[in-house]
């Protein structure tokens, strides 16, 4: 096996690959996105690449996981290794998408690898949603939109309360029910 093939094989086991939630977010983002786009927690970069291809927009994809950033880069997404929104300038993006790691996870059962970072939202399922919503108003341009995927497992009403606290109005742009959860894409505007 070549080094490149080995590296790709490794990346696939440590990077979240597109699933139902990705499809739902991509569909909503293709419809709603405009201007300069950021996808936070881009993972494989699939959603970001869909937006870039379908809408011809400039899309930046950020992820905590360097393996994910590399996969996103291979999909021609402008990739950055970052912690949520911390290295982005004020008012930098017109559209910000986020499919957060949202599974509520018992601290005793955390398994501490890249896949856990991609899936686990801590005890409440909201451990990444909270800091994201607290900072997204800084990075979003004045007339911009945030597209946030919310699972019923994460507590829909609790997330709406955080959205409200952050000073955003919300609108449901897409929703789909599965046996164990309902996934909703919210568009947040000021």
């Amino acid at each position: 096996m070549t080094d490149l093939a080995e590296r790709r094989g490794l990346d696939d086991t440590v990077v979240y690959q597109p699933a139902e939630d990705s499809g739902l977010l991509a569909e909503a983002a293709i419809a709603e996105a405009g201007g300069r786009v950021l996808e936070v927690g881009t993972g494989s970069g699939w959603v970001a690449a869909q937006i870039a291809d379908e809408r011809g927009l400039e899309v930046v994809g950020s992820d905590l996981n360097p393996h994910a950033a590399r996969q996103a880069g291979e999909r021609s997404v402008e990739a950055v290794v970052a912690d949520l929104l911390s290295p982005f300038r004020a008012d930098a993006f017109d559209t910000i998408c986020f499919n957060p790691p949202y599974l509520p996870t018992d601290p005793d059962n955390e398994w501490d690898d890249w896949m856990e970072h991609a899936l686990s939202g801590g005890e409440t399922g909201r451990e990444l949603i909270e800091p994201f919503l607290a900072d997204v108003g800084r990075v979003l341009a004045p007339a911009g939109v945030v597209l946030l995927l919310v699972s019923s497992l994460t507590g829909y009403d609790e997330v709406l309360a955080l959205v409200d606290n952050a000073g955003f109005d919300h609108e449901v742009v897409d929703e789909e029910s599965f046996p164990f959860e309902t996934l909703t894409v919210l568009a947040l505007r000021r």
Binding site: P66, A69, A79, V80, V81, D83, P87
Partner: peptide
């Protein structure tokens, strides 16, 4: 300082970069 490697900038805060 923040490194750019293989075309990708690593903009993690230094403590998180070292941990990763």
């Amino acid at each position: 300082t923040y490194p750019i490697e293989d075309g990708i900038p690593n903009l993690l805060p230094p403590d998180m970069r070292d941990e990763a």
